[in-house]
Design a protein around this nucleic acid. Sequence first.
DNA 1: ACCTGAACACCGTTCAAGT
DNA 2: ACCTGAACACCGTTCAAGT
Lengths: 226, 226
Amino acid sequence: MAVRKIRQERRPEILDAALRLSEERGLAAVSMRAVAAEIGLTPMALYGYFEDKEALLDGLVGRLLRELSQPGPRPGAASDWRDRLLARARGARALAHRYPRTFPLLLDRPAELPEAMRVVDALYAALLDAGVPDGQVAALERMISTFVLGFAVSEVNGRFGEGNLGTRERRERADPREVPAHHRLGEVLDRPVDWDAEFEEGLGRLLEVVERAAGAGEGSPRPGRP
Amino acid sequence: MAVRKIRQERRPEILDAALRLSEERGLAAVSMRAVAAEIGLTPMALYGYFEDKEALLDGLVGRLLRELSQPGPRPGAASDWRDRLLARARGARALAHRYPRTFPLLLDRPAELPEAMRVVDALYAALLDAGVPDGQVAALERMISTFVLGFAVSEVNGRFGEGNLGTRERRERADPREVPAHHRLGEVLDRPVDWDAEFEEGLGRLLEVVERAAGAGEGSPRPGRP
DNA sequence: ACCTGAACACCGTTCAAGT
DNA sequence: ACCTGAACACCGTTCAAGT
């Protein structure tokens, strides 16, 4: 029960090493022993900075989220809610591309971290400015971040395809009676996908959902900042 | 390089043991050694049935997906595309609640399994029947299954909240200047969430997206089955 | 044909000790 | 105050052997 005292000074150094390791050799290669070796320490030294491995992984999540929550709404430009929402969404996806092997951690973990709260807050603010009724803000935020996170994770972990076996071969190998719609669609499924465009289109559709939720509330959306 | 011969007979038995173990003690407890012990075998015996641990986990994904792809469109009732799409979505979420500790595997893994293809095919078929243009079917399917999977995973792994620390305390502990929208929303964030209702509302919004995509295509949707 | 046993190179973590 | 060393109870997997 004795709550060990956690030191802070070398945490950034340790997390950088963990992130480097994760991107170079995969998340599975992030072991206490490997991270320690990376910066010339004994595994046990890490326990001065992190309670256990879980805490180190939470730290990694925080490291990623900090890059996302950093900018905040630019103080000068009076950007509207759409721009701010789009910026957060694109920022999250860009983060996934920058750290493809580590990013999926964000979906694995509850992340009740302060950094996560700041990102969510920015989305709440955008939805409020759009005129979404208070009672629907949280649900819409969850819908949007589920899409953004889920899309970005699926892209980088290969769930969306481009696996070792091409779609075409898999489809042709399969019994047409088992997957009739695949056969009806035929070659359109083989066309290369423009992921940027698909993500933007999904976002556009979600913006429409937000607008409808805002419109159904009452008359006019809240004014922008003065 | 010599491709080992993989036996089939006891695979279901092994996968059942792995699933049981995963639900009882968590996905991390699914080790080759623990699964083997569960059915009275030596760890090495499993390698007769699965190439390696990855293959065993893929088998687990297949086990879950089979429950989802099982029913197919009931042969009698001429259900419309909405009902079939909703049935698949609700089925996926129900699966998450039935196997909460194992379900997140579905988002981790590419899953180019035949079972996954059958589920996707059912969604393609529903979207085609709705009148969605061929070129947009795959993107809409990805948007829908990203929402469904992401929502269900977030629900069962705790990403949506209900963590050890209540939202209220976290919000009040945070600096109001750091998370202003949380403070503006105040107590509405503390209201208990009806996850069933929120999921259904999200689905409803996605059905509207589908309808708009279908409407923008051309005149009339495809007819139901004769 | 199916399974076991011993061995190898790894894990996370505790505890006591070093400087 | 910060770190190390030895030890414990685990991993996945290879290889050779048993029946």
